[in-house]
Amino acid sequence: MKKIFFSGLLGLIFIYGFTTIQATDNCDKKTLTNSCKKKMEPFKYDSQKFTKIMYQKKAQQLEIEVPVFIGEKYRLVFNTSSLPKPVMVNVYTKDKESKKREAIYSSKDLKAGENEMVFDVPRVRKLYIDYDVPADSTSQKLSGCVVMMVGYK
């Protein structure tokens, strides 16, 4: 009887531990940074932005504003490898409130499993990076992070 009870108890602890591990994200910032840095060459590091993604029942759109300057050449590197579900990365010339905005990059054509993106920016006045986060109807509380690195030369 005692054995059955303890087996049940261990089972409960295991299930609890498993769901807890699933609920935490796997955002190893150092590894992600080093990976982006390799793709940044020969551009010089300027800044980076980690964006924590917490999947919700509704789809979300998160935006990052990146100021750029005339005459400079820029490269953007994204890494989405720590995400449990793919997030679409789009780069625009204007913010999401603007009707005139133009998409200059989208990750929609990436092959499945590809999670590192390199984009050399054409001449623009400002950059708006949008992360289109899909809805998650499960109760797993999925989360992860996206890193964007900006370089210039």
Binding site: K49, K52, E65
Partner: peptide, 23 residues
């Protein structure tokens, strides 16, 4: 329900990436 869930997530809709002093 959605509003409640959104309020508990500390992620801003718009964030900013500033350049470096070196640039």
């Amino acid at each position: 329900s959605t509003a409640t869930e959104t309020a508990t997530v500390e992620v801003e809709d718009v964030s900013y990436s500033l350049p470096s002093p070196l640039q």
